[in-house]
Design a protein around this nucleic acid. Structure first.
Lengths: 132, 132, 132, 132
DNA sequence: GTGGTCTAGACCACG
DNA sequence: GTGGTCTAGACCACC
């Protein structure tokens, strides 16, 4: 379970944890039925207050991503995979729409936007290639 | 000077004011040397406490967008246009890069991303066409 | 953290706090990573409204001297030492240049200025010697 | 009567006017008995509110630098030359002492300070030479 | 009239 | 507990 937290970011730590776990489930790094690290252990690992991790787990349970079995631990819920996958698609879609609308409002033509995106796609691909 | 504030939004009111004014300067609605509405007047107009507007103006002054002439009022600074314009470009660029990186991390291929973007561009164009 | 505030001074209290903290960082009394007293505590200590201290901290954060970790407190930023040190040198330099330019404009020869400075250096040294 | 005003400066405009006139009297550019430009004329020349100039003249009259003869205008007072000259010397002296004390408090040795001053004296001399 | 500073006190999110 | 935001209202300097 590799989770990256940026304590400087303006998005709350508990929200970062929620996102990271949802992302891990969405891409199959955590499968339904898998055990999730206990609150205290993850808190220690991330150098974060246990209450923060607990709040993240609570939110994830409310969203149906995790289930707690008393005495046994916290597990990835059964329908979680599809849930997270769909949610991420939805989020991506709306975020892209928002950014594009912003660019258009700022006066960029569709051609400019397309060109910029193409450029970014290549850059990112190269960076990924280097990382491999 | 038309400024829209959403008091329900989670982003602070004073930040919304900052953004709106930067946006107005970036698109040329306010030109360097122009007077900005006095703190109390804008506060009354937005149904907001004067201190909140003052905080926004203070931030804008620190960013070099506004300059205050004591007793006379607040004015758009000389280099403000370029400043705001560049900042907006930079923000747009980094936001796009972030969204694209997220999409790639989620397993979307470059082709899928490009197709989605093309689709969104058309949608937005049509919406704009309808609005006209 | 010893901070002296002169509530009679014409320079605003929050600016005095900013200066004092920058000075403490510059001379190494506060090191990067150190905790800064909480807003309310320092406010109580200085007999000042918490908002005033908060304003000072806000400015210091914008200047890169402090960083806030939500819910945890305020800390001296990593690059703060060099930042404050350099700024102080720069300020001193420009102030000296200004005073000397004024003296020359007032018709003092370089020799006169040099003699006066030498005299002042000795006076200050003696005063320091007495204090020890 | 050449007066330079910096409307951006943090020192009030009326104070800048006071200083400039005292400086002119101190260096003999205005001699006792000379007429000073009327409030409205100077205000127009400096692109400043007449009230601001009026306040400056009031302060200068209070300090014994100017005298108003009703219907005739404003004049440099008789003892003004010595007054301004002495005051400037006093100000220069105390400012130098303050700057030097600051430098010492910042940890600069007397040698360092002396070297820096020597350097600044040369720079300023050269700059003046270029301007001539 | 203008903005700047400060106080007092409230509410909220975060850890 | 921490800081962040906002309100209400006061006082001041400057123009």
């Amino acid at each position: 379970m590799f989770i990256q937290i940026d304590s400087q970011s303006s998005t709350p730590v508990f929200e970062q944890i929620v996102r990271e776990i949802k992302s891990a489930v969405a891409r199959g790094a955590c499968r339904p039925g898998d055990v999730i690290p206990p609150v205290r252990q993850l808190a220690k690992q991330l150098l974060v207050n246990p209450n923060t991790v607990a709040k993240a787990y609570r939110d994830l349970e409310r969203d149906g991503v995790l289930t707690t079995r008393r005495g046994a631990g916290v597990f990835v819920a059964l329908g979680a995979r599809k849930l997270c996958h769909d949610e991420r698609r939805r989020d991506l879609h709306s975020e892209m729409a928002r950014v594009i609308a912003e660019a258009q409002r700022a006066g960029m033509s569709n051609d400019e936007i397309a060109r910029l995106i193409k450029q970014l796609l290549n850059v990112d691909t190269n960076e990924l290639a280097i990382e491999q």
